[in-house]
């Protein structure tokens, strides 16, 4: 394994992967259920929270899949299950053709090198007692990716430049960085071990808009340069549209609609997607005043006792009687566009 983080190395690596299979990550019928236990000495399982309830998606090399949904929809749990931080109850997660479900922690270690993670909170996800250089260099040490001390230092300073920070900052502690700079550190750490997939869990949500735009541009540059695939989790649909090639919308642990980004935003088919899109105010007063908006009733139902049939039926503006009787499956309603709604019509 070469350690020079050049674009050509990555291109070679990704070419060989492409010949094996076109899909980098393939998730099938993934379920994560958390048991609820009662009792003091003898604990019984009385119920379970179906945080992720049978989701499937693919990510190809260099592609971004946006996973959107409101709090409690299961998007973060799904991401953790992909990297086996939450052990899925059932289903399959194949990464570069290798099945990850059921792998031991030690067998997961080489896989984790290839999947980087960036978290929401740039304050909570960096160790305040480590110097920035050590934080970024840690993956190199853990996975043995530096040949010598000189090589290690060279790689760390090159990572600093890649994310737009000065290598001279490597001696500083996280509290000496601004929020935007910390998120750059988080990105540098995530790409240090040259992964082929980055999981970005609300990675830009906590940032001010001017800084958020800088980080989004950085991520797009890195994707192009290294042919990185992204699993981009966010609740902000306008950010997801900007960065994603494909989008999956989650509600109560299920994917309710998935489509190419362009189609989903131009022609949403599921009533939940429609409501989500209409709920987002855009910075254009004329557009805002003329726009139809769908205000949903009520709150997200408790995942402890989801409604029978379609999970969205309690808030759905077009729900019919059959919606509370039948669980809708994802149906292909247009090329590359699937929605789980009994009432959504197909588009020619």
């Amino acid at each position: 394994m070469t350690v020079t983080p050049t674009a050509s190395d990555r291109a070679v690596a990704s070419d060989s992967e492409k010949s094996e299979s076109d899909v980098l990550l393939s998730v099938r019928d993934l379920k994560v259920h958390f048991p609820i236990k009662r009792g003091f000495l003898v604990q019984r399982e009385v119920a379970s929270v179906k945080a992720v309830d049978g989701i499937s998606f693919d990510i190809r090399p260099g592609e971004t899949l946006g996973l959107v949904g409101e709090s409690g929809s299961g998007k973060t749990t799904a991401a953790k299950a992909v990297i086996q931080l939450n052990r899925p109850g059932s289903g399959s997660v194949k990464f570069e053709g290798q099945e990850l479900v059921g792998l031991s922690t030690s067998a997961m270690r080489p896989v984790r090198r290839k999947i980087g993670m960036v978290f929401q909170d740039p304050y909570g996800s960096l160790n305040p007692r480590m110097r920035a250089g050590d934080i970024i260099g840690e993956p190199l040490k853990v996975h043995g990716l530096a040949e010598s001390q000189v090589d290690y230092r060279r790689q760390v300073s090159s990572l600093f430049s890649t994310v737009g920070l000065s290598p001279a900052m490597s001696e500083r502690y996280p509290n000496e960085f601004s929020g935007g700079q910390r998120q750059r550190l988080g990105v540098a750490r995530a790409i240090a071990a040259k992964p082929s997939l980055l999981i970005l869990d609300e990675a830009v949500s906590a940032l001010d808009v001017s800084i958020q735009a800088q980080i989004l541009n950085l991520l797009q540059d890195l994707q192009e340069q290294y042919n990185l695939a992204f699993l981009f989790i966010a609740h902000d649909l306008s950010v997801v549209r900007h960065i994603s090639h494909r989008v999956a919308v989650m509600y109560l642990g299920k994917i309710v609609e998935t489509a190419d980004s362009k189609d989903l935003y131009e022609r949403p088919l599921h009533p939940y997607t429609k409501a989500l899109l209409s709920a987002i105010p855009t910075p254009n007063p004329i557009h805002e005043r003329s726009r139809e908006r769908i205000i949903l009733r009520g709150d997200l139902p408790s995942p402890l006792s989801p409604p029978p049939g379609c999970g969205f039926s309690t808030r759905c503006p077009i729900a019919a009687d059959m919606c509370s009787a039948t669980v809708p499956e994802l149906r292909t309603l247009a090329p590359n566009q699937q929605a789980a709604c009994l009432l959504a019509g197909s588009v020619e």
Binding site: N217, S238, V239, T282
Partner: peptide, 16 residues
């Protein structure tokens, strides 16, 4: 700086 749903998709944002 903000990605906008009221406009066609742009390749890159133009941040401050």
């Amino acid at each position: 700086s903000v990605p906008r749903l009221d406009r066609p998709l742009s390749e890159r944002l133009d941040p401050i």
